[in-house]
Design a protein around this nucleic acid. Sequence first.
DNA 1: CTTCTCAATTCACATAGACGAACGCAGTTC
DNA 2: GAACTGCGTTCGTCTATGTGAATTGAGAAG
Lengths: 263, 263
Amino acid sequence: MSQQTTTPGDAPAATVKSAARALDLLDEIAARGPGTQLQLSQRMGIPKSSLHALVRTMVVKGWLETDPTGTVYKLGIHALVVSSAYLDGDAVLAQAAPVLDEVSAATEETVHLGRLDGTDVVYTAKRESAHPLRMHSAVGRRLPAYSTALGRAILSEQPMEVREALVPDSIDAMTPHTTTRKADVLTIIDEAATQGYAVESEESCLGVRCFGVTLPFGRTTHDAMSVSVPISRLGNGREDFIIETLLSARAKLASQREHSTVR
Amino acid sequence: MSQQTTTPGDAPAATVKSAARALDLLDEIAARGPGTQLQLSQRMGIPKSSLHALVRTMVVKGWLETDPTGTVYKLGIHALVVSSAYLDGDAVLAQAAPVLDEVSAATEETVHLGRLDGTDVVYTAKRESAHPLRMHSAVGRRLPAYSTALGRAILSEQPMEVREALVPDSIDAMTPHTTTRKADVLTIIDEAATQGYAVESEESCLGVRCFGVTLPFGRTTHDAMSVSVPISRLGNGREDFIIETLLSARAKLASQREHSTVR
DNA sequence: CTTCTCAATTCACATAGACGAACGCAGTTC
DNA sequence: GAACTGCGTTCGTCTATGTGAATTGAGAAG
């Protein structure tokens, strides 16, 4: 993804090449894994001699580390440090955290907070299910917005053009149940807009169904919350209960928002 | 952290200025919080005109975001994304995770994994206590090594010169109980080396005592595990139980290491 | 021991960026 | 409403850095 985010078709906007490359390099390694200088230079289309100085700089600063052998470059520990700072400075997270806890306590399932970034959603917080059977997930992970309940919830509050733009024409199936036709996905998002919540069943993780609602912050909502439940634990109205829980969580946040003048 | 440049007393080491600055800027914001372009340029000692292009580049790439007002710059969502990639690629974490779970289950207290970075330790994983009274902590947060049980455990396996170097002459008290004399801290570390585990009582967080042991990976150990317990829950041999749990966790990892040829 | 391969590294030139100073734009203060 | 203050932005020059080709070094293969 990263390579050349180039916001499509706009001004050349004086950009600092070496700084951009340093950041791209971090993204590249994050997205496609570690590599040698040569491999990375090929993957990114940068002359290896250029990469050389760059990599050295980044190692000195602790943003990259090498293998024991010294030839393979991977992310350094500074990659971790900034993440907590990002989360600390996030007003949405701070406000949503108590509600997240409540939903987690009420449902006893894995609960995520996520945010739209490009066509993906990035998890910004989670609460894990107490059950031994639980999803593998992590704060910072990105998944396509259109195939997750969380992302669909966000998309359902966007105007049509945005939905169109953020659902690609060709969708890779992550599981046999993934909806791969753009039109179908758009229909699903439309239903979510009507219902007020989004669903995704085994489309990104086999055996798991997710439910998502947006968080009522700001006028363009980029944040949402979802609950992921193994299908084996659904039934007996438990699905409805989870949806109710999510909707009332959102209602609670919305009312808080009216009382306190936050941002 | 940032601002140093000039790797102490060795080769001039061709460094890429603008890349270094981009990274320093991330560190700066992570360490001392967001700011306007002017503030940041002053904090970092960079001409504002130089910072201007840099900041724009980083915003375009999603590594920085602005306030709603557009004047205050803070970390962007990419800061989150790399962190999960860092953790994913970490062999130590993958191996230690099950043991972490066990210690968490056995003690029902907050358990941390951490790694030495300069004079600090950075948390790389945690399991939270189920008790409502629990520490505030987060993966990615850094604390001084010398004042935490986790850090002291790591230091206790380092040679004397390293300990000397990593404990500063002047220590800021984080709580009234913080040990602030370098000599005292070195003595405590020495005791930890003898005992095989490190302790810290209310020195970084009032009301909390922590116990730490190193993880037996590699020959120079940079990783350690700790348990943080509210003092009110100690007593009745619970302290000994926790220490035993940690020591046996380490023993388990050590034996695993002998069987599997990892890394 | 020689040759191949794949890695990092260095060098000398063309270019991209760092810098200080000047500018534009709000919101405040007098 | 005029002078200030704090902010981002632009411009032209000097310098740092990106680049391709050539070099070194370590293993593996012959």
